[in-house]
Amino acid sequence: MDDFFLGCSLFLGGLVMLSLYRGIFGPTVLDRMIGVNAIGTKTTVLLIFIGLLYHRLEMFVDIALAYALLNFIAVLAAARYLQKRKGLYERTY
């Protein structure tokens, strides 16, 4: 069973890498935000997998819970930035 979990987590890791593509190369900031948000969700799940692999899930649940609760503060803040500053692009040199 552990091997299965490991495989799952590696698979998820690969997905994280793909999402990271959007995070790094996303044409607009919003795309980056989506990418990072997606990474956040996957991270929560990965934390659970790590807990399973350590056989100490109850210790990792707290972290995952904190993550689930706090993950979207950053997204909200960024969204709020955009709402207030209006504009996806600021002139770059």
Partner: peptide, 17 residues
């Protein structure tokens, strides 16, 4: 810079993992 800040968030997710 906003993108950098967001990606820095992702960086800290990774670190947490």
């Amino acid at each position: 810079l906003l993108g950098a800040a967001i990606l820095f968030g992702a960086y800290s997710f990774m670190m947490c993992l």
